[in-house]
């Protein structure tokens, strides 16, 4: 019981052609409230998909079920074809899913560097005895993982902040640090919950840039929650729209933008008709 948990077996799961993530008929009830109802989603390798919808639509609840924080009421979640909906959160992380939180959850009293270094603990590669006895293995592995963590900080332009206490960072940097931390766990699938919330337009563009960049560089599949529709339009290849716990639309950004159900979900009933009228007027 004293050795670090076994390394992620995700490598063995990679060989078949199953989608990265396959969610079927997922539902979650909170004492009668159907927060998520009959949710389906399939993510292909290397895709960048947006999950949008107004506040309270059930997006975060979907994330919480995928990462094992909530146990689904019904439905199945498969990662590379393997059922994960009955696993504990830390095991799901070991299998290759990492996430960020809507209301940033950093280890706020730890340094920026330690926030990232925590991600390596399952594959730190030294035992409890190594650490207590300060063996050679401890020293080399610790140096290696510190360097790796520093590399991640550089990707996110946080390298000058490494000894800073996380809670003292400005908001935008906290958001970036949280993504860096998730990424350091070496996931196959990255779930980002409203990463641009609270950012100004320039920062948002910057962040979307970064997300696009890491997707390519680390060969990730990314599922991104956003409630401002505009933000995801530019970078997502596909979008799923939720409202009141259900999927109301699915498609490319273009399709979604003109979908009347989506417009109504965002702007209220009757909005679609209004918008049509508006467009027609403009065209005339």
């Amino acid at each position: 019981m004293m050795t670090v948990a076994t390394a992620a077996p995700s490598a063995t799961l990679n060989n078949n052609n199953a989608p990265v993530l396959s969610v079927q008929n997922l539902s979650k009830e909170f004492g009668g409230l159907k927060a998520v109802y009959n949710f389906n989603l399939e993510l292909a390798e290397h895709s960048l998909i947006g999950l949008i919808g107004p506040n309270g639509a059930g997006k975060t609840t979907v994330f919480n079920m995928i990462t094992g924080i909530y146990v689904p009421t019904t439905g199945s979640i498969k990662l590379y074809g393997e059922e994960i909906s009955n696993l504990e959160p830390h095991k799901i992380n070991h299998l290759g899913i990492a996430r960020t939180f809507q209301n940033i959850r950093l280890f706020s009293n730890l340094t920026v560097l330690d926030n990232v270094r925590i991600a390596y603990h399952t594959h730190a590669g030294y035992s409890l005895y190594d650490s207590i006895l300060r063996s050679k293995k401890y020293s080399t592995r610790e140096r290696e993982l510190t360097e790796k963590a520093q590399d991640f900080l550089e990707v996110f332009r946080l390298e000058d902040r490494q000894t800073e206490i996380a809670k003292n960072l400005p908001y935008g940097e906290q958001r970036r640090l949280e993504i860096a931390r998730a990424l350091a766990a070496n996931p196959k699938l990255l779930l980002l919950d409203e990463p641009a919330a609270g950012m100004n337009p320039a920062e948002t563009v910057d962040l979307m840039n970064l997300i696009h960049f890491i997707r390519d560089k680390f060969n990730l599949t990314i599922l991104l929650i956003e409630h401002q529709m505009r933000v995801v339009m530019g970078i997502c290849e596909g979008i799923t729209v939720m409202d009141f716990g259900e999927v109301i639309a699915r498609g490319t950004p273009k399709d979604i933008q003109s979908n009347p159900r989506v417009i109504e979900a965002y702007l209220g009933p009757g909005a679609a008709a209004l918008s049509e009228k508006f467009k027609r007027k403009k065209n005339q």
Partner: peptide
């Protein structure tokens, strides 16, 4: 670091793969 992360935020610790 794993021990301290549990104090800091249990949910985040779990999501980062800490038992």
């Amino acid at each position: 670091r794993a021990i301290i992360s549990v104090r800091e935020d249990e949910v985040a610790a779990k999501a980062m793969g800490i038992d």
